[in-house]
Design a protein around this nucleic acid. Structure first.
Lengths: 229, 229
DNA sequence: TCAAAAGTGTTCGCTATACACCCATGG
DNA sequence: CCATGGGTGTATAGCGAACACTTTTGA
């Protein structure tokens, strides 16, 4: 039997962070899953996650997980729910603080981990370990809700992108269709995007590339403007 | 020294639930605070909260807290954030899963607790124990955001209410002003409210009273309708 | 040269806003 | 009878949805 050296007057649950890592391949929203190497649920796919260290915040823990699996030092992450069902882990009571991360697929390296990691399209995800199906479902729901009114979609696209790519992203995430021309003009008049000037004669002039301008967004928001897709 | 009988191979943080209980008095949004009877922060005001039991979910814990302080068996509650800063409690590492609750002030009884409890207007809250200032600030922000697009405001009003009361609520929570007449008509045409018929000749015919119709709301939402205030 | 995609323009209908008016209530 | 607030009507502006047209690109 393992040595039990951390003792308390009252029972304490274990605490983990799980991280739903989303990426966009130009057509579909994808999520990064890990194949479990140990029991329970050995061989099953699961969300990246791990125990919270005593000297780190949950956000730091989530970023640590992210780094381990993608090599990324930083990314947009958001805490969206904490899962606490007493029996959600068969070994002992474990509560998990769940984050989702939005990453640019182009920037992602293979993880440090020996564990097998793979990107799955959202409608192609296998049955997951623990209650991770539920966690993923809620992550998706929360992302949809957030992306409706906050400019987080840009985190999934290259720094410079075309309006068409932006449209594809929103259509994929929100599962809707926009009129190409109206979407274009709306983005143009929003003043949130700055067009990239390109002098290189070897690269075509169209389509135009844009960058998101966070400062402008904060400015407008402060004036009562509310973004909506 | 206390007996330390719950032992683990790795250190575990303690886990609590805190509950930000909101009420509406017809003019202002209020929050229920507890005066701490023990150290740390003895004598300071704090959010109701307590340790999570090993056999209950966080939601059950939050409802238990709610019951203890208000006598209410049930209410709308929502988990909005989990606070994990390593030093947020000076005694040991404690993470807290925070909920907010929306209650009807008329229904609230005094709590079971010996502890002193009091309702404070939001812009009249004293400095709080632990990081509860931050928790309250974030709770308020999340409530504002939620009430924008979801019909949770009704949880703060009597079952039957006038349009004017509804307007006052939204003006107080969102800190805006609506045109009385436009607000009235908007609510009318929304089809979410059913007017209460009243035959009693002793009670005035105006103002009309309304009830929120959740079934109708679900129906409309399903058809792509989105509520907005 | 030609199809597909990118960029621009115009119209139309809905809805949010602003504001006028009349009725009910209670002193 | 009168002040206050509750309920209803109407005009206008602005924005989003629908759709026509021109230009650029790349095979």
């Amino acid at each position: 039997m393992e040595e039990q050296k951390y003792c308390y007057a009252y029972p304490h649950p274990a605490v983990t962070t799980d991280c739903v890592i989303f990426g966009f391949d130009g057509t579909k929203l994808k999520v990064l899953l890990i194949e479990r190497g140990i029991d329970p649920y050995k061989g099953k796919w699961a969300l990246p996650g791990g125990f919270l260290r005593m000297d780190e915040s949950a956000e730091q823990g989530a970023l640590r997980e992210l780094k381990e699996e993608t090599g990324l030092e930083t990314a947009y992450i958001k805490q969206f729910h904490t899962f606490t069902e007493p029996k959600r882990d068969p070994r002992e009571r474990v509560i998990t603080i769940a984050y989702y991360a939005l990453v640019r697929l182009q920037d992602v390296q293979g993880g440090d981990d020996a564990a097998r990691a793979e990107w799955f399209a959202l409608d192609d995800v296998p049955a997951l370990a623990f209650d991770h199906d539920q966690i993923l479902r809620i992550a998706t729901r929360e992302l949809r809700q957030q992306i409706h009114f906050e400019p987080v979609g840009f985190e999934l696209l290259p720094k410079q992108f075309t309006i068409r790519e932006l449209q594809s992203l929103y259509e994929a995430v929100l599962d809707v269709k926009f009129d190409r021309r109206n979407f274009y003009k709306k983005m143009q008049h929003l003043e949130l995007l700055t067009q990239v000037v390109n002098d290189d004669p070897n690269v075509p002039k169209q389509p135009f590339f844009f960058e998101f301008n966070p400062k402008k967004y904060e400015e407008l928001k402060h004036k009562g403007f509310r973004l909506e897709f």
